[in-house]
Design a protein around this nucleic acid. Structure first.
Lengths: 302, 302
DNA sequence: AGCGCAGCATCGGTAAATCCTATTCAACGG
DNA sequence: CCGTTGAATAGGATTTACCGATGCTGCGCT
């Protein structure tokens, strides 16, 4: 339990600096009796007489008071530094931003976002994390992240979601598959084909919903939580897949040729969004990054 | 102007440590609504949301809040250290004591006082200063010294004076002086002799007063503010002197023989005292040193 | 020597902050 | 669906912070 206040320390140090209660009073813009009382209270609280009173000639620190005042000034500086840093954190675009991203989204956009944002705001550092939708939401709620880049699917009410862009899903086929001769693939054409499912929440339900809406009961031959593994499985001719994320180059990690075809049907698009906790008051930094993301995605082809 | 209080910081850090307002409330011994309000106020003042509220599940720091809290804990520790040190300074016998001494008294007593006191209280350091009576009083008033060891002569009302011991003045004669055959020297016997005056306030007036009270109009042949110079002058046969301070050994610095004789008359004794500013509230250290001085001088022959 | 001035302390009053108890509200777990 | 947990709100009492006005005391000036 602390027995003195920062205000008292502020007053005492000002009195020290100005050599008198009256001078400090004028400088601080508080009444002289206020300072007098504040000092008397502080002396009582710490059990030390800090100043010697000279009638009509100001005050001077006692030996013990001098020791206190030196340390008190350090404390005051410390407190002022903290205030300055904190006000800056609230109002300036600087400091650290904790950004999380859904694993399959991250490689396509996050490096560019970080690059463009930090070159606009050099005093910002961005800490990255990746995870499943679940982990992202948990992390946002737990205060581990400021923002998360994810698919706007099944978002609970307590998140503030800013849609950034929507992308049409595509069909991924082995390079030599017979359907590759089509420019657009109607989903019904895949009815008999084995399906390779990207098995991460919420993608799993999103992809199966697309197929079911088209009247298919997809035969899930294989599934994996890894985008690259799915592409590898398709590359091996083990089935087709439906994906949103489309890396550069139509080859799997192992080099098998892949074919990407638009879906002929009208289907629900994948909406990439930036999410934050609704109850969180945003710092300037967070708002600025949010605005930057909106800008950035507006420049991209959907 | 600081916009937050140490109390608020104390509360916020406790909430962080305990993971919930309720737990911190129990631990701090303050009501839960008090903490809740205190935290809300702090967040408003610094313009940052520090914690994310989880209904019925406590709170957790936000990313920005975490940065604040880490620094805030440092500040809190700093403030607690200052409080601990200051309370110790007021109540424990430790820290620094600023002691001044009248120049002619210092060599005879101060080293012993410091030695015995610091061996009793090893955590004490003593800073020494010497000066004329005038400088001592000015230093006490200005807060440069805690205490001063001096002669209790002409002490203004605003000093608290603790008499320690009184010493009879003695006559100092050249070793071969004819009066050395007397065991006690009546002052009247010095009537025609040249007088060497130790010329420091207040010693000067004290010595001349002694002679005048005995009906002598002393012929001041030489004077010096230095005790050792006075003894040297007497050693050279240039006159006699009246002194209180009696160094060990009856020789001047230069080696001339000196003779010390008690005064036969009843004369005003020199009173050594410890003085402090009356308005100063004493620390434990100062009181302890004062008591030690009283003890120490009680053991000495007067 | 007296008087004005400078500067700290005290007083009375008001606005604000602090802290309490009691209550409400929202989410989670069984 | 209900009980439990834990934060927020409401209302009220006490304490604190601050102000203006005034008192007090030593210093310097005339």
């Amino acid at each position: 339990m602390l027995r003195y206040t920062l205000r008292q320390v502020e007053h005492a140090v000002a009195i020290w600096d100005h050599g008198s209660v009256a001078a400090a009073s004028a400088h601080l813009g508080v009444a002289q009796p206020t300072l007098s009382a504040s000092l008397a209270k502080l002396e009582e609280q710490v059990g030390l007489q800090l100043f010697i009173r000279h009638h009509a000639q100001g005050v001077s620190p006692s030996p013990a008071g001098l020791a206190f005042l030196k340390e008190a000034r350090n404390l005051l500086t410390h407190a002022q530094d903290l205030q300055r840093d904190t006000l800056a954190a609230g109002t300036a675009v600087e400091g650290q931003l904790s950004l999380a991203s859904f694993a399959t989204i991250a490689p396509s956009f996050v490096p560019q976002l970080i690059k463009t944002f930090t070159s606009l705001h050099p005093k910002v550092t961005i800490r990255m994390a990746e995870g499943t939708q679940d982990e992202l939401l948990r992390g946002l709620r737990g205060g581990d992240f400021d923002l998360a880049l994810l698919y706007d699917v099944d978002m609970p009410e307590d998140f503030a979601v800013t849609p950034l862009a929507s992308f049409a899903p595509h069909v991924l086929l082995p390079g030599k598959h017979k359907l590759t001769r089509l420019k657009n693939v109607p989903l019904i054409a895949l009815k008999a084909e084995p399906f390779v499912l990207l098995d991460i929440a919420p993608s799993r339900t999103y992809f199966t919903r697309i197929l079911e809406n088209a009247g298919l009961a997809p035969k899930v031959a294989f599934s994996s939580p890894s985008l690259e593994v799915v592409r590898g499985l398709v590359g091996q001719g083990l089935g087709y897949s439906i994906l949103v994320t489309r890396p550069f180059g139509d080859h799997s990690y192992a080099g098998e040729e892949l074919a990407v075809r638009p879906i002929a049907d009208e289907v629900e698009r994948g909406v990439i969004a930036l999410a934050g906790l609704r109850q969180m008051r945003k710092t300037r930094l967070v708002s600025a990054f949010e605005a930057h993301c909106v800008d950035y995605f507006r420049t991209l082809p959907t």
